[in-house]
């Protein structure tokens, strides 16, 4: 089990020790340790049902009904992006973005956030008038408008088509480079993880089984031999033979 040892100071916004979570008799997370540094982009891989979302929900504080124990230390100012855009259908786009904001400059900041995700001028639109990709961009704007120290994303591109997903990858990377939140991106897509993250974790049997630093120059692509090497080792760890298919 790989654990990031290191100075547990303010530069480590996420610190999880000995986390256990279960549903009824089934143990999902079992003595999990995790540290994420400030501004660090971490992707979390794992097979379906391995507990990726359970971990993310534990960090987001959205698992009140789950039994468990352990230490979870996350910044108060953290945002969540869900797999569905989860926009309130009865609020216009701008009102959705500023939903959690307070203060007189909320609308101003909301418009700036919308411009950042390429949706300037759409603030009066209803969510139902936007495409799936646009809705997820609004959700990104809503998550980043509060300048969070930690961004938790639960398969945010899972419901998008392949082309839109590629564009969203670029956008997310750009936004994270500008705002520098610590990121935990839950995904089942190995390529997505390698393309975006500084570090890829693999969750297995309730613990972090692989902790892989990705040190590749941008733009990352299949053409880089190191990319393929990472891909191969991660797929193997997931129980897939990369030479097949």
């Amino acid at each position: 089990m790989a654990t990031h040892a290191g100075g547990l100071t303010a530069t480590r916004p996420v610190r999880v020790r000995d986390l256990a979570r279960g549903f009824g008799d089934r143990t999902v997370l079992d003595g999990l340790d995790l540290t994420i540094g400030a501004g660090e982009f971490v992707a979390l891989l794992g097979r379906s049902g391995s507990g990726k979302s359970t971990l993310l929900r534990a960090l987001a504080g959205l698992d009140g009904e789950v039994t468990g124990s352990g230490l979870v230390d996350v910044p108060a100012n953290s945002s969540v992006v869900f797999q569905d855009a989860r926009l309130l259908p009865w609020q216009r786009v701008l009102d959705n973005v500023v939903l959690g904001l307070r203060g007189p400059d909320a609308a101003e900041r909301g418009r700036a956030a919308l411009a950042e995700v390429g949706l300037a001028g759409r603030d009066r639109a209803w969510p139902s008038e936007l495409s799936g990709g646009e809705q997820q961009r609004v959700a990104l704007a809503r998550a980043l408008v509060s300048e969070p120290e930690l961004l938790l994303a639960d398969e945010p591109f899972g419901a998008l088509d392949a082309l839109t997903r590629l564009r969203m990858h670029d956008l997310l990377r750009r936004l994270c480079d500008r705002h520098r939140p610590a990121v935990l991106l839950v995904t089942h897509d190995v390529d997505e993880a390698i393309t975006l993250a500084d570090r890829v974790l693999l969750l297995d049997a309730g613990r972090i089984a692989v902790d892989l630093s990705i040190d590749l120059p941008a733009p990352r692509s299949y053409r880089q031999p190191a990319f393929l090497a990472h891909r191969e080792s991660l797929l193997r760890a997931l129980g897939v033979d990369p030479t097949e298919g």
Partner: peptide, 15 residues
């Protein structure tokens, strides 16, 4: 899911 969204945004009761 909308209630969960409200929780994740730490909305106050009135909001």
């Amino acid at each position: 899911r909308y209630v969960e969204l409200g929780e994740s945004l730490r909305l106050r009761r009135t909001a």
